[in-house]
Nucleic acid binder design. Structure first.
Length: 468
RNA sequence: GACCCCAUCGUCUAGAGGCCUAGGACACCACUCUUUCACAGUGGAGACACGGGUUCGACUCCCGUUGGGGUCGCCA
C-alpha cells in the first residue's frame, strides 16, 4: 500500500514554525516513500476560520516548497458526509443526544476541578431517557465512549502508549448548530482520503485515542500515528500562535532563505547522524520516522542564522540581489539604479560571506548603492582625522593618474605610496575604507575601489578630504 | 488536580550494553590568517538530572524520585 500523508492546519492564523515543520515531516516522509502528501484545511470552526488565514497558510507552504500534491481539501465542505456518519453512529446506538448547556458543562468542570477530579463530561445524558429532553434546547451529539478496558496506540515515534478507557469522556461530534467537530471530521476525512500515516504534533497524542475509538466504532482501520515532539520557545514552553510563535512570512521578512529554514527545521527533532548541512534531496533519501526524537526542542535563532549564512554563501549574486531589492529600494527611497546593481553584482561574492541574513547583506553592501556624498559613521569619522587626510590626499593624486582603473593597479599604487611614505598599509587603508564606504567594515578596499569605478572612488575620496 | 509524554554540553543533537577518556553543530573564549569586518583553520571551556536495581560491564535495560512538557472546549 502506498503511503499517503497529510498536513491538516486550522485556518485561524498564520502558518507558524511548528506547523511548518509538521508539514515538512509529512512531505519528507511521503517523498521518501514515493507516496502522496496532501493538505486539508480544518475549517469546521466557522467562527474562527478566515480566508486570510487560508491564504497565509497556502503562501507559507508555497514559499517553503511544501505545497500539496493535490488540491487542498476543505473540511467544512465535507460536512454532509460527516453528519451522515454521525447519524449512522446514532442509529447504531454508538452515539447519543446531550442536552447540557455550555453553562452546565462549565459548572461541571468547575466542580470537578474543585473536587480535584479529572475534568471530564460526566455522561449525564448517556443513559438518560430522551423523554426528559428539554424542548427549548437543541442537543449536541456525543460519541458513546468505551467505559472499560484500555487502549494501546503503537505510535511510530512515541512507542506503545496506553490509556485506560475510563479516562476518556463522551466527546461531541456534532454541535448544536449541526456542524461537525474536529474530532469527528478528522476521522472521517483521514479515512476518506485514505491517509496511511498521521504525522502531527505531540499535543494531539491524547486525541489519537479518541480518534481510534471512533475509527473502531465505524469499523475502519486507524492510520499509523506518529506524534512528533513540539517545538518550544526559548522559555521551554510550547510555541504556539498565542505564545511567541512567528508566521513563516516573518522568517522570510527577517531575511531567511526557505532552504535554510527547511534545513534547520529538519534538525529540530530529527537527525541523520552528525549531518547538519544538507540538501532537500539528501533529506528525502535519509528521512525516516524512526529517526525522529521523542523530546521537545527549543528554537534557536543563532543556529538558524548560521545555517542561513551558509545558504547565502551558496546563492548566486543575481538571486541575492533580487532578495535584497525590496529592502534596498526602501532605504534608497527609489529604484535601484543600473550602475548600482552592476556594482552589487560584482561585489556580491565577497559580500555574501559576511552576512547571515538579507538585511545584514543589505547593510553590508549599502556603500555600493548609496550615493555621494556618503554619511560617515563615528568609526569612519575617527579614521578621517589628522594625518589620515593628508595621506588620503596624496594617495588620491597617485590614484588619479592611474592609466587603467583596475584592482591590481589600484593596489600597486597604494602599496607604492605606503612604501614611499614608510607607513603601514592600515594607516592609509582604513581612511580609504572610511571614504569609500562611510564605515570601518567592508570587503578588501582595492576590490571596492575597482568596483566603484574611477570617478566614483576618486569622488568619494574628495568628499572625505573636503569634510575638514 | 487527573491522565499521558519526555530527560546527553547553554541550545540542536550522535549514541541501539563494552567502540565513550561521551562525538558533531550553533553560541562562547583564545590563537592563526589579515588593510577593517567576516570567512576559513587550529585549540579551549562545556553534558549523560538523581537514587536504586539487572549485568562481568551501563549514557544505553527496569523501577522510583526530581525536573520539564502536553492534554483535559459545542478550538483544532
Amino acid at each position: 500500500m502506498s503511503v499517503v500523508t497529510r498536513f491538516a492546519p486550522s485556518p485561524t492564523g498564520f502558518l507558524h514554525i511548528g506547523g511548518a515543520r509538521t508539514a515538512l515531516f509529512n512531505w519528507l516522509y511521503a517523498r521518501h516513500m514515493g507516496g502522496k502528501y496532501l493538505l486539508r484545511i480544518e475549517d469546521t470552526d466557522r467562527k474562527r476560520s478566515t480566508p486570510e488565514a487560508i491564504d497565509a497558510i497556502l503562501d507559507g507552504l508555497h514559499w517553503l516548497g511544501l505545497s500539496p500534491d493535490e488540491e487542498p481539501v476543505f473540511q467544512f465542505s465535507c460536512r454532509d458526509r460527516h453528519a451522515e456518519v454521525v447519524q449512522q453512529l446514532l442509529d447504531q446506538g454508538l452515539a447519543y443526544r446531550c442536552y447540557c448547556t455550555p453553562e452546565e458543562l462549565e459548572a461541571m468542570r468547575e466542580k470537578a476541578k474543585a473536587e480535584k477530579r479529572s475534568m471530564r463530561y460526566d455522561g449525564t445524558w448517556r443513559d438518560r431517557d430522551p423523554v426528559d429532553a428539554p424542548a427549548d434546547i437543541t442537543p449536541v451529539i456525543r460519541f458513546k465512549a468505551l467505559e472499560d478496558g484500555e487502549t494501546v496506540i503503537n505510535d511510530a515515534v512515541q512507542g506503545a502508549v496506553t490509556i485506560a478507557n475510563s479516562e476518556m469522556d463522551d466527546l461531541i461530534m456534532l454541535r448544536a448548530d449541526g456542524t461537525p467537530t474536529y474530532m469527528l471530521s478528522v476521522v472521517v476525512d483521514d479515512h476518506d482520503m485514505e491517509i496511511t500515516h498521521v504525522i502531527r504534533g505531540d499535543d494531539h497524542l491524547t486525541n489519537a485515542f479518541r480518534q481510534t475509538h471512533i475509527f473502531n466504532a465505524l469499523g475502519w482501520t486507524p492510520p499509523i500515528y506518529a506524534h512528533i515532539p513540539l517545538i518550544h520557545g526559548p522559555d521551554g514552553a510550547k510555541l504556539s500562535k498565542r505564545h511567541g510563535a512567528l508566521g513563516v512570512d516573518a522568517y522570510r521578512d527577517m531575511g531567511y532563505l526557505p532552504e535554510a529554514v527547511l534545513n534547520y527545521l529538519c534538525r529540530l527533532g530529527w537527525s541523520h547522524g552528525d549531518d547538519e548541512f544538507f540538501s532537500l534531496d539528501q533529506a528525502i533519501s535519509w528521512f525516516d520516522i524512526a529517526d525522529i526524537n521523542k523530546g521537545a526542542s527549543r528554537f534557536d535563532f543563532d543556529k538558524l542564522s548560521n545555517l542561513n549564512g551558509k545558504y547565502i554563501d551558496d546563492a548566486p549574486p543575481a538571486r541575492l540581489i533580487e532578495l535584497s531589492r525590496h529592502g534596498i529600494e526602501e532605504t534608497l527611497g527609489k529604484p535601484l539604479s543600473k550602475i548600482a546593481e552592476q556594482r552589487l553584482t560584482k561585489g556580491m561574492p565577497s559580500l555574501k560571506s559576511r552576512s547571515n541574513t538579507i538585511p545584514q547583506l543589505i547593510e553590508n553592501s549599502s556603500f555600493y548603492f548609496l550615493e555621494r556624498p556618503l554619511a560617515f559613521d563615528a568609526k569612519a569619522k575617527k579614521a578621517l582625522t589628522g594625518e589620515a587626510l593628508s595621506h588620503l590626499a596624496s594617495v588620491r593624486s597617485s590614484l588619479g593618474s592611474l592609466s587603467e582603473w583596475k584592482q591590481e593597479n589600484i593596489e600597486a599604487a597604494v602599496k607604492d605610496y605606503v612604501k614611499t611614505a614608510d607607513i603601514k598599509l592600515g594607516t592609509v587603508a582604513q581612511p580609504l575604507r572610511a571614504a569609500f564606504t562611510g564605515t570601518n567594515i567592508s570587503p578588501g578596499i582595492f576590490e571596492v575601489a575597482a568596483i566603484l569605478g574611477r570617478e566614483e572612488a576618486l569622488g568619494r575620496i574628495d568628499d572625505a578630504v573636503a569634510r575638514q
